[in-house]
């Protein structure tokens, strides 16, 4: 199929969807007659209505939907010089995905080990980092929600938020200074006589994982805190009165209640970690390949945007699968996750 057909479909899609909903709403109003609820234009007035519709249309269509659809579209098109784009050679193809698997657009003889491994590593490591952050933040969130006094709570909040006003790059940089071979940690270890050679934290990727976990702690604490905060303290007291041990209270009362917060925190942290660019660039060892830098290189080193789009789409699919899994496991709706 030629790419111009695809473009026509892409441009028609939002129009059709919007028209469909507008039609059903209009028909419903007509059927309801005098009982119809007050119309959008009447409720907001003409000027405000125009602003609302214009802003939302620009946002949803031009800033969200069309770019995504164009990216999907491009990922199925061959790499062509600009003057040939839209020309006779611009036919839909799977060659970009083939490249991801086999490292070549023609042969399927060899697996593209480097890219596949980087992809698998990124997804796997992101899951581990997410789980680690959940374990690390749960006690803090619980303390803030149910133990701390209001004054102390405000202080804790401030202390949590303050580091996040520091740029992501600088935070990664701080970890690098800390873990460098002449950094504070190594000097301390040597000083204590625990090691006699500096440990190459960065080369071993310990730095990168520390940086990834460090970067998005906040995104875990706050959803957890919000969810636990809404738990009625009496439920905990009642369980304690009945003699439930502390782990039982957490496993069967607090955690189930905090499920939306856990799902939402994990989704955010996973998405941010898998899509992280700064920490891998700054903290990754020379042999590490995180997936996002590879995507970047497809665009701005290899100048193969079609391939880049295909790689980006793979990453996006992984994130979507994670969100769906979180929704399924937690039996949650999208609204509960993004709260």
């Amino acid at each position: 199929m030629h790419s111009s057909v695809g473009h026509a479909l892409i441009l028609a899609l939002p129009v059709v969807v919007v028209a469909f909903y507008a039609m059903t709403a209009w028909l419903e109003r007509r059927r309801a007659g005098a009982n119809a609820p007050i119309s959008f234009f009447k409720r907001n007035g003409i000027a405000v209505s125009i602003y609302l519709i214009a802003a939302v249309t620009l946002w949803t269509i031009l800033m969200i939907v069309l770019p995504q659809l164009y990216m999907i579209d491009l990922s199925f098109r061959p790499k062509l010089p600009p003057n040939q784009m839209g020309g006779p050679k611009d036919l839909y193809t799977l060659e970009n995905y083939q490249y991801f698997l086999f490292g070549s657009t023609r042969s399927t003889a060899q697996w593209n080990i480097i890219h596949i491994k980087a992809f698998a590593l990124t997804i796997g490591a992101s899951i581990v980092v997410t789980a680690f952050n959940l374990a690390l933040c749960y006690p803090v969130a619980f303390y803030m929600a149910k133990v701390s006094t209001p004054a102390r709570l405000r202080l804790l909040m401030l202390m949590l938020i303050a580091p996040y006003w520091v740029n992501e790059i600088l935070r990664a940089f701080a970890i690098r200074i800390l873990l460098a071979s002449s950094g504070v940690v190594n000097q301390a270890l040597i000083g204590l006589g625990l090691v006699d050679q500096p440990v190459d934290f960065l080369g071993l990727d310990i730095g990168m994982y520390a940086g990834l976990s460090y970067a998005y702690l906040l995104m875990m604490v706050f959803p957890l805190y919000n969810a636990i905060e809404s738990l009625d303290r009496n439920q905990i007291e009642a369980a304690r009165d009945l003699g439930a041990p502390w782990w039982h209270i957490h496993a069967f009362i607090v955690l189930p209640h905090a499920k939306p917060g856990i799902a939402s925190g994990c989704t955010l942290v996973f998405m941010l970690t898998a899509g992280a660019l700064a920490a891998p660039l700054i903290l990754g060892g020379p042999s590490t390949l995180w997936f996002t830098p590879i995507v970047y290189d497809r665009f701005y080193q290899a100048f193969n945007w079609s391939q880049g789009a295909a790689y980006a789409l793979l990453l996006l699919l992984a994130c979507i699968l994670f969100v769906l899994a979180a929704m399924r496991i937690g039996k949650l709706s999208l609204g509960e996750i993004t709260r």
Binding site: Y70, T267, M271, L277, A309, L316, T338
Partner: peptide, 16 residues
């Protein structure tokens, strides 16, 4: 967009 990695938002915008 809240649940989409930032790199992908940048990429799709540039492509579009």
């Amino acid at each position: 967009p809240v649940l989409t990695p930032g790199v992908i938002i940048g990429i799709s915008t540039v492509i579009f």
